[in-house]
Design a protein around this nucleic acid. Structure first.
Length: 552
RNA sequence: GCACCAGUGGCUCAGCUGGAUAGAGCAACGGACUACGAAUCCGUAGGUCGGGGGUUCGAAUCCCUCCUGGUGCACCA
């Protein structure tokens, strides 16, 4: 907020320099205003002089001198200016500008950090999208939490978010699932039957089979059609998946079924439309999509010679339906194993006349699960995976959410079960949550001691002059901008890092300065700071779906 | 072979799209509770940012090229 005000001032100075003939307008928009990394380099720093020097063929220091003169006029909130290094202009903001932030934060309350930059744009976030062939595995867990955190961030920044889960209950995977279920069913009835070679071996298949035995007895034993087994398995597994998601606080607005794309004729119409544009052809009995028209290396089959579509076709049709449902922005959260499919889908929607730049794909790398320093292999079919449910049993929802959000999507995520199950000092989740709990504790103490809180108007925020207090205030000031960039860049991990840093600043402050002292004026001011900090922790944690405990 | 992602202290990772002296957290070592909660804090040590070139005032960040790891590259999904 302060930063954006200063940016306006800086832009005005630039325009003034143009008007004065000090430099041309060619450097417009090329300079930045940033928070320097090191202390003693001001609250903000601009590289304007360096950038303009290159363009104008002048010395950076000369330009910096002119800029300083222009900024001098803004003495009302600038405390000091200096030229440093190769030509940075460092700007020190007056302390009271930071201090007066406290009442602003309190007035904003739960809305502090939230914004309207999204302008109500309709965004669909598609995530999880696991086929109902088994319980959610750790990999799905990452995606679920990443996607949900992104959705929450977008909501917090004024987007109209729609969460969708896309699944396929038709293909080969599901057929194998049905066959696996039938095999277990017959096994339970004591009838010899070979288990499918690539069947699903998890214990949950036995549970489903048992449910079928309980409901239908042996009435299905001669049933050759796999449909009832498949249907039972799908129902059972989906109930399980939904329960797991609900446990994590994740809810979808819609489950979109691939089957409906066939039933509603969207598959056929996509092919027809591509054909009319001359983008498909037949060869070797299959139908090919000319992806080479979009710069790809080779064309791809969309309908096999058997007449069955490949996965690409429904994926393209599905994305067309997303566009038809009038979303302004389509965010897809996929595992990195989908890398190859993305370009084909984008080519498809482009071919159908839609703007592929409205699609943003977040590809997250895999989760490697380690236990006692050894890697645990995960495979749904062989049932050696650790499920999300098992993980939640071990570490709880907050720890799981926090761990999965700690890494940017591009990074592989090592989930050390040994470490995550250790409830204790190593765990950064508690570090942050303890910050919030501690703040609450101070407020409780104040109440118990009978401290009467003065109205904000009677409290002097300029008493918050300790170096640690100013650091906290500056960090708070950066909170809304951080949320905004984390949302727009679909990067929840930034929120986590911000909160860890803020917690560090606060714990440090707590150990050095007392809030409740004999000095009532100071105590009152610090209590307001505590109030404001508590709000920032609480808002930050909640925006990404974590809880903010008052006690631990 | 091709494409995408990654390579940053012993380990796990940030580094806000080119800024100044590269940062956390674990682990190690040394300290701080008659205290608003020690689930905390303070201090010490530890890195030629995978290697090599290049671009410019300035590179962990951009370009080229090698090396290593992961994931894909089907008429599987």
């Amino acid at each position: 907020m302060i930063r954006s005000q200063l940016k306006i001032v800086l832009d005005a100075c630039f325009a003034q320099g143009v008007a004065d003939g000090a430099w041309s307008d060619r450097g417009a928009g090329k300079f930045t205003l940033e928070v320097p990394r090191h202390e003693g380099q001001g609250d903000f720093s601009t590289n304007m002089a360096l950038v303009l020097a290159g363009i104008e063929k002048k010395k950076p220091r000369d330009i910096a001198a002119i800029l300083m003169q222009l900024l001098e006029m803004k003495k009302d909130f600038i405390d000091a200016l200096e030229v440093a290094g190769p030509g940075f202009v460092n700007i020190h903001i007056k302390a009271d500008v930071w201090q007066r932030l406290v009442p602003e934060v309190l007035a904003a309350g739960e809305n502090f950090g939230r914004s309207a930059v999204g302008c109500g744009r309709r965004v669909m976030v598609e995530f999880v999208s696991a086929n109902p062939t088994g319980p959610l595995s750790i990999g799905h867990g990452r995606q679920a939490i990443l996607g949900d955190a992104i959705a929450r961030l977008l909501e917090a920044t004024g987007h109209d978010v729609y969460r969708e889960y896309y699944y396929n209950n038709a293909g080969r995977q599901m057929r194998v699932l049905g066959e696996s279920t039938r095999a277990r069913y017959l096994e339970l009835l004591g009838i010899a039957h070979p288990f499918p070679e690539d069947g699903y071996q998890g214990d949950y298949i036995r549970e489903i089979a048992q449910a079928l035995v309980d409901e239908a007895g042996d009435s299905l034993k001669d049933h050759q059609d796999v449909t009832p087994f498949k249907a039972k398995a799908e129902e059972f597994i989906f109930r399980d998946i939904s329960a797991t998601l609900a446990r994590m606080g994740i809810h979808f607005d819609n489950y979109y079924n691939e089957q409906s794309l066939y039933e509603d004729g969207h598959i056929d119409s996509v092919v027809a439309e591509l054909r009319s544009k001359g983008l498909v052809y037949e060869q070797d009995g299959a139908v090919w999509f000319k992806t080479t028209e979009f710069g790809h290396e080779k064309d791809r089959v969309i309908i096999k010679s058997s007449g069955e579509p490949t996965y690409r076709l429904p994926d393209i049709a599905y994305h067309r339906e997303k566009f038809r449902r009038n979303f302004d922005w389509l965010v897809d959260i996929f595992g990195s194993d989908h890398i190859a499919t993305v370009p084909d889908v984008l080519a498809g929607v482009q071919a159908l006349g839609y703007d592929a730049s409205k699609v943003t794909v977040v590809l997250h790398q895999f989760v490697t699960l380690t236990r006692d320093g050894k890697q645990v292999k995960m495979s749904t079919r062989k049932a050696t995976f650790v499920t999300v449910d098992e993980l939640l049993d071990l570490v709880g929802v907050d720890v799981a959410r926090f761990f999965f959000m700690m890494r940017k999507a591009d990074s592989q995520l090592e989930f050390d079960l040994g470490l995550a199950t250790k409830e204790g000092q190593e765990n950064p989740v508690y570090y942050v949550q303890y910050g919030h709990a501690r703040l609450c504790s101070i407020l409780r103490q104040a109440e118990e001691k009978g401290v009467v809180r003065l109205p904000a108007a009677e409290v002097d925020p300029t008493l918050l002059g300790e170096a640690e207090e100013l650091k906290l205030l500056k960090s708070m000031a950066a909170f809304p901008g951080m949320i905004e960039s984390a949302a727009l860049e679909l990067a929840p991990h930034r929120v986590i890092f911000f909160l860890m840093e803020l917690a560090g600043l606060f714990h440090s402050y707590y150990n050095k300065h007392k809030v409740l002292t004999e000095d009532t004026g100071l105590s009152q001011a610090r209590l307001y700071l505590v109030d404001a900090l508590r709000l920032v922790f609480s808002n930050g944690l909640r925006i990404v779906g974590l809880t903010a405990p008052e006690r631990m």
